[in-house]
Design a protein around this nucleic acid. Structure first.
Lengths: 336, 336
DNA sequence: AAATATTGCGCAAGCGCTTACTCTATTTTA
DNA sequence: TAAAATAGAGTAAGCGCTTGCGCAATATTT
C-alpha cells in the first residue's frame, strides 16, 4: 500500500507537506502542491483513515443502534441518520439488537472500542444497564424515543399524547365510548410509554365516561390478529380499537374482517406509526403519524452539535404526533 | 484514555505481555495473566481497535452498499448480513446510494479508506464504473443480484427465470394469453434483469401464442398505480399483469380496484419479492418469492470465506425463486 | 544596512497497538 | 556437570498518519 512516505519521496517534499496539502491545513506553494497532488493521482493514493483517526482522535464514524431493521419503524429513521451523516463526512455502523439487551450492550461496547465519535441509540430495548454503560464510558450519545424524560442526556421524543388525544377525541366525536387498546410487549420501553400515554389520555377524558381495556400484543401483525380474535370471542365487544403500532392494527383488522366484522362499520381501528402499509390496506388505516425520517435526521443533528461542542447544554427535541384520518374509523353504529 | 502502557506499568509487565494476554496469543503464567486482567478490569480498560487495526491490517469491519433502506427489498437482506457479521466479530458500515451512482462510488471510496475488510454491494445502481473501482482498488467484495453473470467475482444471484416461468405457467393454466409486464425503471440493473427474464420466459412459451407488452413503472406503488390506470384506458386490456416488484403490483391492484376492475376476477396480478405487505393486501398477492434474508446471510458467508482466503476460486451462488400462490390470480373470465 | 518579521517547509515525536527477535533463568539431556 | 533445550517475558521497530516546534531564506521595517 502506498503511503505518505512514498508520496513525499517521489514529490521531493516531507511527509508533513503531504499531510498539509491533503488536509489543506497550512499554506503550501502552488507548484509544490501540484507536484504532490500529481504524485498522489499517479499512485492512486488513498489516505488511510485508520491512521488518521489514531493520530487525531476523531474517526468521523458514528454508531446507530436499533432493535430490528425489519420493523417498519426503522428504515426511515436510518435513512434520516445516514443521509445527514454522509453529508457531513461520517459513516455509520448499523447495529441491530434484535430486541436483546445483551446484544445491545455488546454492540455499544464494540462501537466504543472502534472509537466512534458518537452513538445514536434508537433501540426500544434500552434499560438502565445500557444507560449506565453509556454514561460510564463517557461516550457521546443521543437517545431516541426513550421513556424516562428526566434523564440528563441529549434526547428526542415523540409526543404520543397529542396524537393519541386526537385519536380519542376523534373516536369520541364519532360516539365511541368503549375503546380497547392493543399494546406492544410490555417489557419494551417504547411499548410501555405508549400504554402510559393512552392511559393518561383516557384519564383526562373521564368526564366522557369511557370504558377501556388494555390487551397485550407483540407489535407484529400476528399479535394484533391473535388479540383481536380473542376480543371477538369476549362477551363485551369494543366499538373501537386503538393499537400501539400499525402492524398490530393491521393484524387486528384482518382478524375482524376474517371474523365477519366490518371495519369501520362495526368496529373502528386506529393504528400508530403511519407506515407505508397503512395507505394500502383496505380500508386504509386511520393512524397516528410519527415523523421517523425527521427524528432520525434530527438525532444526527443533535449528535453533530454535541460532537462539535461537548459542553453544550443538554439538548432535547419533541416531535408532535398527529392523527391521520383515513377509512378505518367511522360513526359508531351498533350498541354494544 | 488508558492504554497498554498504563496497564503494563501498573501490572509490572511489558506492553507485549498485555497484548498477549488480551489476544491469548502466547503463553503467559496464570499469576501474571491474572494480574494483568485485574488491572484491566480496575481501569475499565477498552482496547483501541483502531490502533489494533492499524497494526494488524485487519479491521473486522465490512461495508454494505444498498440502494435505499426504505425499499422493502433491503431490510431483510441487511438483517442477514448484519447478524452473521456480528456473530463473527465484524461490524458493518451501512451505505445508502439513494439510487445514485455517484453516491455509490463515493461510499465505496470512503469504505476503502476506512480499510474495511470487504464490501457487499447489493445496490441496484451498480454499473461498470463501480465494478471498475472495485477491481482497481483491489478490495475484497461480493456482488448481490448484479446482472452480468460472466463477471469474475464472487457473486450471488436470484434466479428470476424459474419463478417467472412458474408464474407464467400458472397464468397459462388459468387460460390467460394476454399478459402485461410492468417493469421497474429501465436504468436499474435489477429492473433490467427482471425484464430480460420475463422476455426469455415469454419467448420459451411462444407455442402458447402469448400476447404481451412491457410498460415501465418505477418500482414504487405510485408507478404501478399510474401504469395500471393507463392500461385501463387502452383499448386492449390484458387479463393478467405481472409486475417487476410487489410495490408495483400493489399500486396496480389499487388502480384497478379504484377503476372498478375486480382482482382477480377481471384481471389477475402477480408480484415479485414477496414482501410482508403481500399477505396483508386484499386480495392477498400472488407473488414470486425472493429469499432476501438468506441471500444476505450467504453474501456474508462468501465474504468471510474470501477474507479468510483471498486465493479461493470465484464463488457463485444462485437462489431459486418460486411462485407463492395467493388470491390475486384466478381463472380467466372475460374475453378481451 | 542592520534588525526584525514573514514565508514555506522539514524534523521528529507520538497516537495505541502488534510481533519478530532477544534475553535470562530454569530444566533437560548426555 | 557442562551443554543444550525450553519456558516465560521484554525490547523496540513499525503500522500510516498529525502537528508542535524550529529553521533557513526572503521580505519588510527603521
Amino acid at each position: 500500500m502506498v503511503n505518505y512516505n512514498d508520496i513525499a519521496r517521489i514529490a521531493k517534499v516531507s511527509p508533513t507537506t503531504v499531510s498539509h496539502v491533503i488536509n489543506e491545513t497550512r499554506f503550501v506553494m502552488p507548484e509544490t502542491k501540484k507536484r504532490v497532488l500529481d504524485v498522489m493521482k499517479k499512485l492512486k493514493y488513498q489516505p488511510n483513515l485508520l491512521a488518521r483517526s489514531l493520530a487525531t482522535g476523531k474517526t468521523h464514524t458514528i454508531g446507530l443502534v436499533i432493535s430490528d431493521i425489519r420493523n417498519p419503524f426503522y428504515p426511515e429513521l436510518v435513512q434520516g441518520v445516514e443521509e445527514l451523516a454522509v453529508k457531513n463526512g461520517y459513516n455509520v455502523f448499523l447495529c441491530n439488537t434484535d430486541y436483546d439487551i445483551g446484544k445491545g450492550l455488546k454492540s455499544i461496547g464494540a462501537l466504543i472500542k472502534r472509537k466512534i465519535d458518537g452513538i445514536i441509540v434508537a433501540s426500544s430495548q434500552v434499560d438502565s444497564s445500557v444507560i449506565k454503560q453509556l454514561f460510564d464510558t463517557n461516550v457521546i450519545f443521543v437517545l431516541v424515543d426513550w421513556c424516562k424524560r428526566n434523564i440528563k442526556a441529549d434526547s428526542l421524543y415523540f409526543d404520543y399524547k397529542v396524537g393519541i388525544a386526537e385519536a380519542i377525541s376523534h373516536l369520541i366525536s364519532f360516539g365511541h365510548r368503549n375503546i380497547y387498546f392493543i399494546s406492544g410487549p410490555k417489557e419494551l420501553k417504547t411499548a410501555e410509554i405508549r400504554i402510559r400515554n393512552f392511559m393518561d389520555v383516557i384519564e383526562s377524558n373521564k368526564s366522557n365516561d369511557l370504558n377501556y381495556k388494555i390487551l397485550e400484543g407483540d407489535h407484529k401483525i400476528d399479535g394484533g390478529f391473535r388479540v383481536a380474535q380473542k376480543i371477538l370471542k369476549g362477551k363485551i365487544c369494543p366499538t373501537a380499537i386503538v393499537c400501539s403500532n400499525d402492524l398490530t392494527a393491521i393484524g387486528a383488522m384482518k382478524a375482524l374482517q376474517t371474523g365477519g366484522v366490518k371495519v369501520p362499520e362495526d368496529i373502528s381501528i386506529i393504528g400508530l406509526d403511519n407506515i407505508a402499509l397503512t395507505e394500502i390496506v383496505s380500508p386504509a388505516l386511520t393512524t397516528i403519524e410519527l415523523e421517523r425520517y425527521r427524528i432520525g435526521k434530527t438525532a444526527m443533528e443533535l449528535l453533530l452539535n454535541r460532537i462539535k461542542n461537548k459542553e453544550l447544554p443538554k439538548q432535547t427535541c419533541t416531535f408532535k404526533t398527529k392523527l391521520i384520518i383515513r377509512e378505518s374509523t367511522s360513526e359508531r353504529k351498533n350498541n354494544n
